[in-house]
Amino acid sequence: MSTQHTVEHAALVTAARGGDPAAQDALVSAYLPLVYNIVGRALNGSVDVDDVVQESMLRALDSLTALRDPESFRSWLVAITMNQIRAHWQQRQFAQAPVEEAGDVADPGADFVDLTLVRLQLSGQRQETARATRWLEPDDRSLLSLWWLECAGALTRAEVAEALELSPQHTAVRVQRMKAQLEAARVVVRALDAQQPCEELRGVLASWDGRPSALWRKRIARHARGCTRCSGLWSGLLPAEGLLAGLALVAASPALAASIRSAHDTSALAGAASPLGPGEDPAGAVPPAGRHRSADGKVTARGAARRRRHT
């Protein structure tokens, strides 16, 4: 992000923090794609993506007065978003419901990988890499959601480290481990796409239910390493960071942006602007008046539009 662009956005944040509705709307328009891509890729396929995106944006808007440096808004927003993703996983675990169970996965139209492929018109190894992300564990998908945006030029490594609450050195180690899993997942995609499937692999897959998982990634990758026929699939893999460089962000639906604005307006009209004190963490705050937690831990907005699926 250029210095001029940073200054312009800092001025926008300052105006929004002062209560300017137009500036607040502009912030939503400017940063919703970033938040949507982080959450969408981290929670791929979950019906709760829109909810987590909305709550992340609303927490940031409601807590702007807690932000001391307007120029740090982006990193602050990313940290809030990652905390909301962690809260989502914790709620699922607390409810003792498998995160990837069928009832928690949206229809194919809501799958973020499919959205990425269609809207960015990916092909070749870029398409292969996007599809491979389905095979990562939740923790690795969360890290990938940030690293993908770093490669695309939308985040810096410092912002990634801050969002993960890790040192740059530890972040680098985590990224290397995740890239190794992603590379194995790319080989899995190649193995399953082979025009003439390996007969030995067919035997390995006899009990597979057809759904990507870390367990089956390991089994298929292990086969590909030891199989004479499949071992060649590891060759010719271009570095993922080069494939992701400069990629555009997947746009959020207009309906989601409208829902966020509606929920924020409802909260403001209800006198719910309850800024946090200095040093308090907006991601851990109690939802302001005008929004409440339902029995399953989700945050809803009174009078806001119902959650809409991605289009």
Rank of each mutant, 00 (worst) to 15 (best):
T129V: 15
A110D: 15
V118H: 09
F112D: 09
P108I: 11
L164D: 08
S167H: 03
A152K: 02
S145E: 07
V113W: 02
L155G: 07
F112Q: 12
Q125C: 03
V105L: 12
L149W: 01
V99Q: 09
D107M: 03
E150S: 02
V113S: 03
P138Y: 02
C151G: 01
L164W: 03
T129Y: 01
L164V: 04
D107C: 08
E165K: 14
W147S: 05
G103T: 14
L120T: 10
V160G: 00
S123C: 00
Q125K: 06
A110P: 00
S167A: 13
V113P: 01
A163Y: 01
P138S: 07
T116E: 14
L143N: 05
A152N: 06
W148V: 13
D111R: 03
A154R: 06
G109L: 10
A106Y: 01
A152T: 10
E137L: 10
E165D: 14
V99A: 09
D140K: 03
S123E: 14
S142H: 01
L155W: 04
S123F: 04
L122P: 06
L155R: 06
G109Y: 01
L155Q: 11
Q121M: 09
D139L: 06
V118D: 14
W135N: 04
F112M: 14
S145L: 05
R126A: 14
D104F: 09
E162W: 01
A158M: 04
R157G: 08
T116G: 08
V113Y: 06
S167M: 08
D111H: 09
V160M: 08
L166N: 05
R131N: 10
G103K: 05
E100H: 11
L143F: 04
A132V: 11
L144A: 12
P138G: 07
E101F: 03
L146M: 10
L143Y: 02
E100R: 08
E150P: 00
V113C: 03
E128D: 13
A163F: 02
R119E: 15
G103H: 05
C151K: 07
C151M: 08
P138F: 09
T129K: 03
Q127E: 15
L120V: 08
V160H: 00
T133Q: 13
A161V: 12
G153N: 11
G103P: 10
T116Y: 01
